[in-house]
Design a protein around this nucleic acid. Sequence first.
DNA 1: TCCCGACCTACCCGAATGGCTAGTCCCCCT
DNA 2: AGGGGGACTAGCCATTCGGGTAGGTCGGGA
Lengths: 215, 215
Amino acid sequence: MGTVLDSDASPVRLALVAEDPLARGALSRALSEQAGDIAVIASGTLAEVESSRAGDAPDVVLWDVGLHPSEVGGRMEAPELGAPVLALVPDESAGEGALSTGARGLLFRDVAPAPLWAALRAVARGLSVFDPALSALRATPRAGASASAPEGLTPREREVLALLAEGLSNKAIAERLDISEHTAKFHVNAVLAKLGVQRRTEAVVRAARMGLVTL
Amino acid sequence: MGTVLDSDASPVRLALVAEDPLARGALSRALSEQAGDIAVIASGTLAEVESSRAGDAPDVVLWDVGLHPSEVGGRMEAPELGAPVLALVPDESAGEGALSTGARGLLFRDVAPAPLWAALRAVARGLSVFDPALSALRATPRAGASASAPEGLTPREREVLALLAEGLSNKAIAERLDISEHTAKFHVNAVLAKLGVQRRTEAVVRAARMGLVTL
DNA sequence: TCCCGACCTACCCGAATGGCTAGTCCCCCT
DNA sequence: AGGGGGACTAGCCATTCGGGTAGGTCGGGA
């Protein structure tokens, strides 16, 4: 942070951390298709990136925790590279772990490119960024209250439920998830069925009562 | 989403809401110095912007709650312009209030330009953005936050709102209140209008957040 | 007295919703 | 290799919603 000019134009220097080469490649490729104000200065597994640390530290670390973060080992080990970490998680449970390791932001792994770029820049500027569906985790100790039935609900359905709780219409949900309105309806129906209700409003109320979503 | 290019290049359409003309001017000026991918399509006080709503809705609302949001009146009234709201608050206490009105992001008023741009883009993409010092909020069970405005809502409307929060259809509400379905719709519409929402689900969420109903 | 607000009823119409059936990928598990 | 499940797309159809407009009654305050 210094001159006036660096305010926005200065490229964001990014360190990309992912154990899975495939995921790393996909992210790296997607990143490179960017206008150019995001520069990948390091990429590799956690060990690789931490060792290859060449003089200049990144502005932000994009950390893909992978599909099965729990299998990796006892606890999740977050990158420690002197920069805020934006974690990509497969689901809510992984989000808790990532947060506890100090992640500054939390997005789902399948986030669309545009939001990802925006999030990276925001985190690089020192902000915290969350997917709305994950923002409930913030500082929430999650007192084992998971009790309810997240089971039965697939990840996609939980995602839809979260948007449902935002009061979005099917069309809006479709746009947000970048799927067809038909599919959005499909998922909404699945949620309604699994929650045993007829109306989306009911679904939101029940979900809120069960702690599936945070209003 | 279609081409690669639209992913990030598409300009963000912003509505700027601030009661204080000075603050508005400062923000507006700062905004205009931007590269150009943020277009201010509306600017003014809450009332002004909400009324001048010209056809196309913004992608994001930048809302400056001012220096003394508590003095304004009993409760904070958030912009409801069909877009996620990024609130600029003077301190943590104001943050709680802003959150309870549904703000999607929370930054301090004196945030630097760069983080602000980044945050605006992220919120426009559907993400939640917080200043790290504020991200711990939300966990607080909206202590004094309730206080809200049962005023504005007539007794009958509050009654309808309660049934709305049960997920009842217009017909069901009509039967429960022993009035015609037409009348039920009438009251529901009144509630929607007074809460500033389009969908009954939204109404329930907002009402819950404001403490008007208990889920 | 007259006006106003709360409350109630009614009709029209386009959009949204939910319910149903059906089909395609893809991946995992047996 | 085959089965099953999740994610996605699709069309059809009846109902519900939401918005707008246009009334009606009643009680209280100006």
